[in-house]
């Protein structure tokens, strides 16, 4: 039974979740909670807050699962919900406000990355970015949204989004090169 459940495909899991099968919901949670907490925590620094966002996201997934049409990737659909939840959290709890920047930021040339940082170190670097840079960088670089979409989502200019991204990249580049010379146990 256990084996069968472990082997059951995501499609089967989705079908069972559509019937509000509590076991299936738990399994879906077990399968994806780690991944999506990593998403939430990139936007929401505090782990407890990120967990709350994750929780709200999962509840939304379970309740709106009927709206999911089989066409696209289920994981992508869930990820979108998680990202939206994170942005909502930032908007309403953290007063996410990105200052409008008219100044065109010249994109510097970035050398190819050679360092082998641990995932948690990279995560920490992102979390240490200012809230605006962090959000835009997450959305653009990792989630893969375009500047126009990001502008719509955050209520900012496309130009502002671009400059925020460039600043974020610059800071991250510095951090990564710094860490190369730091002592690592």
């Amino acid at each position: 039974m256990k084996l069968f459940q472990l082997n059951s495909t995501t499609d089967q899991l989705i079908e069972r979740c559509r019937e509000f099968d509590r076991k299936a919901q738990h399994e879906l949670y077990n399968r994806f909670s780690g991944k999506f907490l990593a998403v939430c925590i990139r936007y929401v620094k505090n782990k407890e807050e990120a967990e709350e966002v994750l929780m709200n996201g999962f509840i939304k997934v379970f309740n709106k699962i009927e709206e999911f049409e089989g066409g696209g990737s289920f994981e992508g659909w869930m990820r979108k919900i998680m990202v939206n939840e994170s942005l909502n959290h930032l908007r309403y709890r953290k007063n996410l406000f990105i200052e409008k920047e008219d100044e065109e930021w010249a994109e510097p040339h970035h050398a190819p990355m050679e360092s082998k940082e641990t995932t948690s170190a990279l995560l920490q670097m992102i979390q240490e970015l200012p809230i605006g840079y962090r959000t835009v960088f997450n959305l653009f670089a990792i989630e893969g949204y375009g500047h126009r979409e990001i502008g719509d989502m955050l209520g900012i200019d496309e130009k502002t989004s671009r400059s925020q991204l460039s600043r974020a990249r610059k800071i991250l580049q510095e951090r990564v090169t710094e860490s190369k010379y730091l002592y690592k146990p």
Partner: peptide, 27 residues
């Protein structure tokens, strides 16, 4: 952009273990 690429590769499938009692809080 190498930075974007680097971070995406590293963080796309990253996992952070949620606290054990989260499900029971959520139920």
């Amino acid at each position: 952009n190498p930075i974007d690429q680097y971070f995406r590769e590293q963080l796309q499938d990253a996992e952070v273990k949620p606290s054990a009692d989260l499900w029971s809080k959520m139920e």
